[in-house]
Write a protein that binds this DNA or RNA. Structure first.
Length: 281
DNA sequence: ATGGCAGAAGCATTCTGA
């Protein structure tokens, strides 16, 4: 079972790149961030024609998330549905469309687009930390001990020094500060494994390269897009790769897709793919 | 320290991203 995350920086601008990549890789589940489009204008049919179901939580110009799946999608949550907090707080954190989750083929899929935060002294940074704290309580309510969870997306946080191209310059700053990492750890609460780090222990592997300053050509990137899986899935994890060649497309997203292979049985009778060939990565 | 690049809105230029 192939599961991917990709911040596409506008689903409409990147449409042919996304559908070409889908045809090439044949993922079972693809989670998108920064779709930048209202739900009414989302190009649903392009994915449905390829045999996928789609759920979306979009907004105009900014943010927006979607899940594209070959398996039946059940128990959809658009945004936060926290019960043990004042409703007004959930409403506030649902204004920006950064979260969508559902049950798919026995897995809880939780797709996030964490706020960037701008700089440590800004109101946006304060929002980022509070948003992560709200996410933490949402996960606490949503995730049961035996649930099989895949928690993925654009986290806008480099977990460690080795996830930044020039730590001497960027450690402690935005996306690499102690506060953000603590907030992220409070969300994870030791429940998850960073899929990528099971297979690669060294620095030099990035999922995002700034459009500016020739960053891709100089390979000055960050690893900020992550696929966390619950510990009870660890024995099923067969691979995790960053599809960095997608950053070389004409007019690419500034992020590359991240992809895992989970060895999980098809539990779903109405699997939408009639192709029996398993894609090996 | 500043600006570089890109997308959306909307028609010149601003806002936002990371």
């Amino acid at each position: 079972m192939l599961i991917a995350t990709w911040n596409v920086n506008s689903v409409r601008t990147r449409l042919s790149q996304i559908t070409n990549w889908i045809k090439d890789v044949n993922p079972d589940i693809l989670c998108l961030q920064e779709t930048k489009v209202v739900d009414e204008a989302f190009p649903l049919s392009y994915f449905e024609e390829l045999g996928y179901e789609v759920i979306i939580n979009g907004q105009k110009s900014y943010n927006g998330v979607a899940i594209i799946s070959k398996f039946k999608i059940e128990n959809v949550n658009k945004g936060f549905t926290n019960e043990n907090v004042e409703e007004i707080i959930s409403i506030k954190f649902n204004e920006q469309k950064r979260l969508i989750s559902a049950d798919i083929n026995g897995l809880k899929i939780i797709n996030v687009y964490v706020p960037n935060g701008s700089s440590l002294d800004s109101d946006k940074f304060d929002y980022k930390i509070k948003w992560l704290n709200h996410l933490s309580s949402f996960l606490d309510e949503q995730i049961g001990e035996d649930d099989l969870v895949c928690f993925l997306g654009d986290f806008n946080i480099a977990p460690k020094e080795i996830d930044i191209h020039s730590p001497q310059k960027y450690e402690g700053g935005i996306m690499a500060s102690k506060m953000e990492r603590e907030a992220l750890n409070n969300v994870l609460k030791g429940r998850f494994i960073d899929s990528f780090r099971i297979f690669e222990k060294d620095s030099g592997h990035w999922s995002w390269w700034d459009y500016r300053n020739n960053a891709y050509e100089l390979n000055k990137g960050w690893r900020i897009d992550h696929i966390y899986i619950s510990k009870n899935l660890s024995s099923k994890l067969k691979s995790c790769v960053i599809e960095r060649n997608q950053r070389e497309n004409l007019q690419p997203s500034d992020h590359a897709p991240v992809l895992i292979n989970l060895e999980i049985e098809n539990q779903n009778e109405d699997y939408l793919d009639d192709d029996d060939d398993l894609f090996e990565i």
